[in-house]
Computed example of a mutant assay.
Amino acid sequence: MLINWQNPKHVYIVCGKTDLRKGIDGLAIVVAENFGLDLYDDSLFLFCGNRSDRFKGLYWDGEGFILLYKRFENGGLRWPRYRNDAHQLTNRQIKQLLEGVNPLPPKRVKTASHGDFY
């Protein structure tokens, strides 16, 4: 069974770097222990390691987990590495990610005003 990116009810991007040597059980533990999300709620979880030309996906199809692995031959992903959370993506953001555009805006740093120093 191939997964259409728009079919799952939820698609989460796990930001930062994940050890892609992990298999199904290891990735499921990352989701359950770090983010408390329901692995069985028609959700696809996307993970990226050090290299931006590949990622893994974890999906429960109702009978078991499917582990997806995608490697781009040309180009790569703009994975949000400045965050440490799992963020739900819209269909538009999934398309941006697969086109090499970072789907999440960078966090803005609030600049200090002169009065903040006193």
Rank of each mutant, 00 (worst) to 15 (best):
E63G: 14
V101R: 08
E73T: 11
L2K: 15
I3F: 06
G36P: 03
I66L: 15
D25V: 08
P105G: 03
F65M: 03
K22L: 15
R92I: 08
Y59T: 01
D116H: 08
V11Y: 00
T111A: 15
D42L: 05
P8Y: 05
M1K: 10
L46A: 01
L44Q: 00
R92C: 03
F117E: 08
S52P: 02
N74I: 13
L20E: 04
I94S: 04
D116W: 05
R21C: 06
Y82T: 09
G23Y: 04
G49C: 09
L39S: 07
V101Y: 09
G36H: 11
L27Y: 01
N84P: 01
D41Y: 10
L44N: 00
R51F: 04
E73L: 08
V30R: 03
E73C: 04
K9S: 12
G49Q: 04
V30Q: 05
Y40K: 12
D41M: 12
R78G: 02
L37N: 02
V30T: 12
N102T: 06
H87R: 13
N50V: 08
C48Q: 06
L67K: 07
H114R: 11
E33H: 09
Y118V: 06
R83V: 03
F117R: 07
L77Q: 00
A112N: 11
V31L: 03
D38L: 13
N34C: 14
L2C: 10
N74L: 13
F55A: 01
S52A: 09
F55M: 14
T18F: 01
K17E: 13
Q6A: 14
V14T: 00
F35Q: 01
S43W: 05
N91D: 15
W79G: 00
V30D: 03
K110T: 11
I66A: 11
N84K: 13
N74D: 14
G64Y: 07
R21Y: 08
L104P: 02
K110E: 12
L97C: 06
F65G: 01
I66V: 15
R92P: 00
E99V: 02
N84L: 11
D42H: 06
W79T: 02
C15A: 15
K107M: 12
L77C: 02
W60I: 06
Q6V: 08
N34E: 15
L97S: 03
K9F: 05
E63C: 09
D41P: 05
Y118R: 07
R78N: 10
T111E: 15
E99F: 04
